[in-house]
């Protein structure tokens, strides 16, 4: 396995072969992420299932670095109208009614294996990629909002007004529904989602990787320490797991 420094992502694709392997070395000897960059012309496959692990014990109280990074990366500028502005990721504060224990954690699209949004979408605009990432094909979204009714995680936003100056890697437009894409444009490029990268600068509470690869950091951690699903009772097998809740 070859380990490449973070800053070198652009070169990675020239390393050749079907799957150039890259990782991010945070400190000497500590490998936090192992991410496969596929060639541009290769379709994603279900051999991979992208997932995230969030360690709520490490998540900073009052820290919103992941939210800021998401907004910057995807150009979610908003109109100062919190009820209608899009939020792809948000920080939740939980307080146990019985014990008073308080904790915070980020919640975004949980990229379910059997996603209710995908089931209910009349046109198939809500869909799950082979590698487990749940997306909205805004080209065929009619803006009926049934997916927003069906999502158990309140993960989706409806674009309520005209947008200007969208990012070229994150097209978004009025009248369609959107949600966390797991930064699919970065993932396809062998990079981590923006929230994970931002979190790794200080708190290191978020891990991204391939749940199907037993040797990935995320799989090893999940195997060793376990990981909970939000609303596990619904049996949706989400790709985002939590520790410490």
């Amino acid at each position: 396995m070859k380990t490449v420094n973070t800053t070198d992502t652009s070169k990675r694709k020239f390393l050749g072969g079907a799957a150039a392997v890259a990782g991010i070395a945070i400190a000497p000897g500590v490998l936090l992420q192992t991410v496969n960059a596929k060639p541009d012309n290769e379709a994603v496959s279900n051999k991979v299932r992208w997932g995230m692990l969030i360690d709520t014990n490490k998540c900073g109280d009052g820290c919103t670095d992941c939210v800021t990074a998401c907004n910057t990366e995807n150009g979610l500028t908003g109109f100062e109208r919190p009820e209608t502005d899009s939020q792809w990721i948000r920080k939740l504060t939980l307080k146990d009614k019985q014990t008073g224990h308080v904790q915070t954690l980020p919640v975004m699209c949980q990229h379910c294996e059997t996603a209710p949004c995908v089931d209910v979408c009349p046109t198939g605009a809500s869909f799950k990629r082979e590698d487990g990432i749940v997306l909205v094909d805004k080209h065929i979204c009619i803006g009926c909002r049934y997916c927003m009714m069906a999502c158990p995680y309140k993960a989706r936003s409806f674009v309520h007004e005209d947008l200007q100056d969208q990012k070229d890697h994150a097209p978004r437009g009025k009248g369609t529904v959107e949600s966390c894409t797991m930064c699919v444009h970065k993932v396809d490029n062998g990079e981590n989602p923006a929230c994970v990268t931002a979190c790794n600068k200080e708190h290191k509470a978020m891990y991204f990787g391939d749940l199907n690869d037993a040797n990935s950091e995320i799989s090893k951690r999940l195997k060793q320490y376990g990981g909970k699903q939000i609303r596990a009772d619904l049996g949706l097998n989400p790709g985002v797991r939590y520790q410490g809740v």
């Binding site: 541009d40 379709a43 994603v44 590698d131 997306l135 080209h139 396809d188």
Partner: peptide
Amino acid sequence: RDETMHNGIRTK
């Protein structure tokens, strides 16, 4: 558009 959206093909 469909290839990129659904299959992650990102040829330029």
